[in-house]
Design a protein around this nucleic acid. Structure first.
Lengths: 202, 202
DNA sequence: CCAATATACTGAACATTGTTAATTATATTT
DNA sequence: AAATATAATTAACAATGTTCAGTATATTGG
């Protein structure tokens, strides 16, 4: 990487850090080109020398957030025994992360990063995020339970859909209306779904 | 209702019909005050004589759509035998309606109708929509299976969350990538969840 | 039926946003 | 140090939601 590339990367970094701070705080609503640039210490027009448009900037923030999210979750779940217990821990930490940063939830699941060319890969990345986090543990379950791959796949999907469904209702509609009740619901649902891995086949 | 109220209601109707047509067609993205008013045959400023702001107009459209949705679903499911079979039919019709009108899905589940005062009631209305559609059939299950109310409640919730999770991924991320695969996933998930009502308790 | 008043409608204008293009400032090279 | 290339900024445009003062229309009292 030559000097020019290093400097460019640095400049992108300034804008991205500004955007990321604002996203974590105020969220996407209050994010605009002028405020990002001001926070970064440049004119709004300068931003366009380093990003195609504001969507590209936001898209790059999503990637950073996903890494951060993964790190945080794995740290939280690392002492949990492999298998169903860790799947539950990871899933709850996953949900917890998005509750902590609602604007990142929006970015990941709600906002259509629309007309960006890289849309499709990003979509897949998000869609399979929880599955990737639990990959080892699902493998462990496959090895150590009587459930077959097909059944595991359905349960895995279900966990994914329920997690994001609960988040959607809680974040967007504030339903359940308080956090205590929400975590209760999360516990009940996640436990119920994962428990099915250990239930005897009927 | 006096003459003035009748006329006001009629005017609101013109704008709402215009907005509803555009919402069903192009969706929320292309909806703007000027185009709604043009479609309705008035100036954009006239709109503000009948609605506080464009959010109020859209909010009223949501209500109309919900009624329409309910009618369509109940018509589709009316010949299905009560209980689990009808729950499945209703849920699939419910999902189908939103696939047919993605912008209504957005309106219902994604868009925060935000700063509107009537937010809370609307949220509850949406949150409990599927449950209300299936109300009689869940009661039927409670009467005719060995499952208790508590267990039924969990399954009901799960169905709600999974439905909206699947929709979210399919609508917003186009995942699964084609409609055939999507309906397959819907069938598998819905059938699996509802089937649990009939499974013997372990 | 006409004038006075109330009501309804409209265009002009403003604020906020993303974006582009031309101009100015800065750095690099010869 | 001058010429050139690069970077950053200001000015401006377009789309959108919203407000307000003016104009057209309807209603009412004589």
């Amino acid at each position: 990487m030559n000097n020019k590339q290093i400097q460019e990367q640095r400049m992108r970094g300034y804008f991205m850090q500004a955007a990321k701070e604002m996203l974590k705080g105020e969220g996407l609503r209050s994010l605009n080109v002028r405020s990002i640039a001001q926070q970064a210490g440049y004119s709004f027009a300068t931003l366009y020398n380093y990003f195609k448009d504001v969507k590209e900037l936001v898209f790059l923030c999503v990637n950073d957030f996903q890494e951060e999210c993964e790190t945080e979750i794995m740290l939280k779940a690392k002492d949990t025994p492999a298998g169903t217990e860790r799947i539950k821990a990871i899933t709850k930490a996953y949900i917890g992360y998005f509750v902590q940063y609602p604007s990142i939830f929006n970015l990941f699941f709600i906002e259509r990063l629309g007309d960006i060319g890289q849309k499709q890969p990003t979509a897949a990345l998000i869609y399979t995020f929880l599955d990737r986090l639990c990959l080892h543990d699902w493998d462990y379950c496959l090895q150590n339970t009587e459930k077959e791959e097909k059944e595991i796949a359905i349960i895995k999907q279900e966990l994914n859909y329920v997690s994001c469904g609960m988040l959607l209702f809680y974040m967007n509609r504030i339903q359940p209306s308080d956090y205590t009740e929400f975590t209760e619901t999360v516990n009940i649902q996640v436990d119920a779904i994962v428990a099915r891995v250990l239930q005897p086949n009927s």
